[in-house]
């Protein structure tokens, strides 16, 4: 069996394989880096950064659901400067694409963070306009086309590296936001972020999460992700990093067929730290079995009825 070329191009950033790890599920790589060399990965979307350090939401922050989890971490992070000083140098010792993920309270904050991160030499910036957890911002940007466009413009004009905008699935029509963001100059799109959900303990009558609601991720959301990647791929001509529920090669292949150039693995790591590597190998086997010489041949080749 001939070897499949796993490399993909995400707006000029070359990934040696199409498997990236999803923001917020992999920290800054240190923890899972104890299990295997991070060079195995195509790239890492780092934990979401804000301009200043955040302690995040009160616990409990995690609730298990059928084939998924709800989280309300609330963007706990050390702040963009601490990331640049303490985490980025460690990550740079490895050979993988470093994608910083940012959330701001105002468009200006996005601008400041993009400047700092571009100067510090990350490979790409993922702009989170969709985090459903933070009352002060987050949701509003991702659900209103004008606000999403404003943030995208701000990020683009303050960045010297490609800007990927991460879309929220908590909207009626995701293509509307995708178009607004594309028109505002985004270089790539990533989707999906978590879906808002809730779980209640019937005995105490209390929600499990202290914030009452949280974001759903994991295998339960895969079909939603596939559908949204497909809709967005049909609507705009930008490369897509697809994510949501990927746990094996077949899941990744579905997202790529729907239109993703690369995929991110998140929640699956919690069950199996080696999930990203297994997804990569599974994807490679699928491409080989289908006679492809390049895994990128899968992208967008769904045959809709």
């Amino acid at each position: 069996m001939s070897k499949v070329d796993l490399s993909v191009d995400l707006v000029g950033v070359k990934l040696k394989n199409p498997v990236v790890v999803a923001s917020g599920t992999f920290g800054f790589g240190r923890e899972y880096g104890q299990f295997y060399n991070l060079n195995e990965l195509g790239g890492i979307c780092c934990k979401g950064l804000t301009l200043h350090r955040r302690e995040g939401n009160p616990p409990p922050r995690i609730a298990e659901t059928p084939m998924g989890i709800l989280n309300s971490v609330g963007l706990q992070n050390p702040g963009v400067d601490a990331f640049i000083q303490h985490e980025l140098p460690e990550l740079k010792k490895h050979d993988l694409a470093i994608i910083a993920n940012i959330s701001g309270n105002t468009p200006e904050e996005y601008g400041i963070m993009c400047e700092k991160l571009s100067a510090a030499g990350v490979d790409m910036i993922e702009v989170n306009i969709s985090c459903p957890n933070v009352k002060a911002g987050g949701l509003a940007y991702g659900t209103k086309p004008e606000l999403a466009a404003e943030v995208t413009k701000m990020a683009k004009s303050h960045s010297t590296v490609p800007v990927m905008v991460k879309l929220s699935p908590n909207v009626t029509d995701i293509t509307e936001i995708a178009r607004a963001v594309a028109d505002a100059g985004a270089d790539a799109l990533s989707l999906i972020n978590t879906l808002r959900g809730m779980r209640i303990d019937i005995n105490t009558r209390r929600p499990i999460l202290k914030m009452n609601t949280g974001g759903l991720s994991g295998p339960a959301v895969l079909p939603v992700a596939v559908r949204m990647v497909w809709e967005v791929a049909c609507a705009v001509d930008l490369p897509i990093l697809g994510m949501g529920g990927v746990a094996k090669g077949e899941d990744a292949a579905q997202l790529m067929l729907a239109g993703a150039s690369a995929v991110a693995v998140g929640t699956a790591c919690f069950a199996d730290p080696y999930a990203p590597i297994k997804v990569r190998d599974g994807l490679s086997a699928i491409a080989a079995a289908q006679g492809l010489d390049k895994v990128s041949g899968l992208t967008g080749s769904v045959l809709p009825w």
């Binding site: 917020g24 599920t25 992999f26 920290g27 240190r30 923890e31 899972y32 104890q34 934990k47 302690e55 995040g56 939401n57 009160p58 616990p59 409990p60 922050r61 995690i62 609730a63 989890i69 989280n71 971490v73 706990q76 499990i208 929640t267 790591c269 919690f270 730290p273």
Partner: peptide, 23 residues
């Protein structure tokens, strides 16, 4: 005890509040 996802420090799920206000 706190509800956990990753168990290794990557997801920041298992937070507990400290007296100094940090998690």
């Amino acid at each position: 005890e706190e509800r956990m996802a990753c168990g290794v420090g990557a997801c920041l799920g298992c937070a507990v509040q400290m007296a100094d206000g940090t998690m």
